[in-house]
Each structure stands twice: as C-alpha cells, then as structure tokens.
Nucleic acid binder design. Structure first.
Lengths: 242, 242
DNA sequence: ATCCAGATGTAACAACGTGTAACAGACCGG
DNA sequence: CCGGTCTGTTACACGTTGTTACATCTGGAT
C-alpha cells in the first residue's frame, strides 16, 4: 500500500507549513496549496488521496471549492475551520465533505480522523460512484447537476434562477431532513450576504420555487413546511450518474 | 429498500427513550439497548444498520464494545459522549468508530451525520423510503405517516396541525397504553420547549385533536382520559406499509 | 349520602409562524 | 432609454399554539 498523499489547503503559509511538516513527520506525503488554482494544479500533476480544506481561504470559500471539486472528483475531503458551527457543518456535508474538524486541532486527532476517512473510503468500494452522482430524480422531475437543467414530469424544461437552483440543490442533498432557514441560507451562500438577516428572504425563495415545481403550490407535496423548524424536501430522491 | 434500523445504546433509560422516539418520528426504526449483551441480542435477532453507542455505559466502556464489535462486524458506529475530549475521540476512531457526536445534540446534525455515514457505507438506497411502514388504521380512520394525511371513516381528508399530528403519532405508537402528560410532551418535542412547563398545553392539544377526530368530542371514544394519569388511545391500531 | 380539593374541559385571547402580494432596487439586454 | 428578470423587504392575512380564567367533573374522606 502506498503512502497517503495529503493536500493541505490553507491561505495562511504558517499553518500550511506547520501542517505539512507534521504530516510528513508522521509518514505521509503532504502537499501545500493556498487556493483553488493550487488544488487543481496538484490534482492534475498527480494522485491526491485526501484534502484538508480550510473553510476560509481569503477571497475564496472552502465550501464553494468543495462543491466544485465534488462535481468531478471523489477525493475525500476534510473541512477545517476555526468556527465549527452547526450551520457550517451542514453546509459542508451538503456539498459533499467527508468530515469536519475545528481549529485549533489536536494533531493526533487529526491523524486519527485522516485514517478514519481513508478507512471508510476503502471500505466503501463504490464511494467513487456516489461522488460522481449528479442527476437527481424526484417525483417525476429531473435535475441534472452538470447542466443545471430541470425537467418537469411532463418533460418540459423549467427555468429556475440561480438562487432557486441553489435552494433545490440544498434540498436534494438532504431529502427528508428538515433544514432550518439558517441552514438553508448557509448552504446557499456562506461567504456572501450577511447571515444575520432576520428577514423573510428564504421563505419568499421557497415560495418562488414552489410556484415552479409544485403541482399545487398552496398544498405543497415536495417542499413541505415544518413549522417552527424550516422546510423539508418530502419527495424520494434517486441519485444517478449524469 | 429497507428502513434503517438504528440501535440506540445508552445505560440511561431516559436518554434511550428520548433518542428512540426522536428517531422513530423521523421514520427510522430505533431499538434500545443498555449494554453489550443487549447489543449482541439485537444483532443476533435481526439486521442493524447503524449503532449509536454511548461512550460511558455504566460498568462498560463504549470504546471496548466498539473494538469488540469491529472484530467481527462492519456495522457503522457513531460514538456518543457528553464529553467529547480529544482522547475519547481518538480512542473511538482507533477502535473503528465511523463518527463521533457530542451530547447535547443538534438533532438535524445528528440526522445529517446518520445519513452521511449511511451514504458512505452504501447501506441505504435512500432515506426516502423510511415512511413506507407508517400507515395506521384505527376505527375507520387512516393516518398515512408518509404524507401526514388523515382520512376520516367517511373518506374525508382532515387537516391536522403539526402538533396535532405529533400527538396522534405518539398515541398511535402506544395504543391502549396510558401516557402521562410528561410522556406526551417528551414525545412531541425533544429539543424545543422546556419540559418543566406546568401549563395545560397538552390538555388543550388533546382537546383540539378530539374536536377533529371524535364523533362526539364530549364523549370521546378514541382518546380517553385516565384521571390522575393522562390519556390513552382506546382504539385498536393496525400498522401497515404505505 | 354529602362535601370538597384536585383534575380536567374549554372559551377567549395574545403572541407567534408562515404565505404571499406588492413594491423597489439592481442588473442586463435590446 | 425601456422592459424584463431577479431578489429582498414590507405589510397584511390567516393558521397555530400556549396561557389564562372559569366551569364542570371526579374520587376519596367524612
């Protein structure tokens, strides 16, 4: 079995250096990266077994990068953050992160986590297939994650706005799991608008998506309201390769 | 396409009860166990898809149990602890735990964690099928747990509120068993309101549900009052897949 | 049998949660 | 410039929920 090649992604050079040295001292190959371009370069240049991906990468969002990586790669990803709030974890899981660890971390725990994730990866032989899955079928509808196209049960293509698609993605990634408005907001845009907004934007957005995909928006069957909690995608979701 | 069977292992019966009810309300089959012997019994008796294993089990150590389980089974294990020290996490990962979660839980995160672990192990096609077990027939009424729809003996759909449905679920899950107000409150809402409320909310809620499903709410036949105890669902309940 | 303290039923009310129409501002293309 | 789309904010309507106050019932004590 070959030595694990870990990609360490952090915009802070000191953290990068410390982590790579630590991993190397523990028998792993550690490659530093500061941003998405670095990640792409390393992954093109050679095999990467696992990515330690910081959530805050200066101008870039680790969550966004994770989501993009997931579109075309199944490499295990451990998200790293100084703030491991539940919302962030949900967002990370929503975009396909394998695990989450908070800074400052116990380095021994980090090693244990890395081993656990790699162990799981090996144990799940078909994990690669799951990570490439990006076509979602639900209640006769079809959402293709690559093309961002949505087709109705009758075969019509339905035009959704950027926000509506993001909301649909968040819901499809968590079928039958109630999502709070904060969680939805976090999944929609972690680094963008101020998350402190106490407005009704999510409700309106949900209403707009309902108007487009529900047979009867006044009696929704797909996106149900869970009073006092938020919204839950109530349809079965089948995920297949696109 | 089977429903997830979760084994809840905790020596504290209150925690066990709370967790199993929460999981059941979310469409999972939850089986309680207090110690290793219980675990072995359940795993011998039938399929277990995932184990929520508390670290501290009275005289027994969850870590030790996890290690032993790993010797001959690859069932996914989420370790649970009130103290999520790094040492404990490391020990858990070292003996093969799949994930770790600290009490008290964010229940949405717990569900997300369960889903993530199950997705990784490819043990489930989708969480979408979890409600197939939950159609309840009683006295001509029909409650479909999948759609949360309630039909009267005359075939009319009756609209129940979220709380009314939760109450009905709790009653249907325990036919002919008197439930105290505290038990009903616990079944209704684990993470919400303070359970110490000495108000009359449960009584009012029961009254509201009676108004909707009793032929004569002043002379209830379905939800009977047991004075000094609480309420008992007096009708026979037949549970079938929906 | 009567009495009564405690238990329970319930109407009324206030606060809260959610749906949604209307509007304004930003943005883009013709 | 104008028109169309997207998006969040605002205001209002309506359903839900718990609290409060009072009426009624009940079971045990006398």
């Amino acid at each position: 079995m070959s030595i694990l090649r870990i990609l360490v992604v952090d915009d802070d050079p000191e953290v990068r250096s410390m982590l790579t040295q630590f991993l190397q001292r523990n028998g792993l190959i550690a490659l530093p990266a500061a941003n998405e371009a670095d990640i792409r370069k390393h992954m093109t240049a050679g095999r990467i077994d696992l990515i330690l991906l910081d959530v805050m990468l200066g101008d870039e969002s680790g969550i966004d990068i994770c989501a993009k990586l997931r579109e075309d790669d199944d490499v295990p990803i451990i998200m790293v953050s100084a703030l491991s709030t539940d919302q962030q974890r949900m967002a990370g899981y929503a975009v396909g992160a394998d695990d989450y660890i908070a800074k400052p971390f116990n380095t021994s725990l980090l090693l244990a986590r890395i081993k656990a994730v790699m162990s799981r990866t090996r144990r799940t032989a078909s994990l690669a297939h799951r990570r490439r899955l990006s076509r979602f079928a639900f209640a006769g509808w079809l959402y293709d994650g690559r093309s961002d196209e949505v087709k109705s049960p009758e075969g019509y293509q339905v035009t959704l706005s950027r926000r509506e698609i993001s909301l649909l993605q968040a819901l499809l990634a968590n079928p039958h799991i109630p999502l709070t408005r904060e969680e939805i907001a976090a999944a929609l845009d972690v680094t963008g608008t101020d998350g402190d907004s106490s407005g009704r934007a999510i409700d309106v957005l949900v209403g707009r998506l309902r108007n487009k995909i529900e047979k009867d928006p006044k009696d929704p069957k797909l996106i149900k309201t869970q009073r006092g909690v938020g919204y839950v995608f109530a349809a079965d979701v089948e995920v297949t390769p696109s």
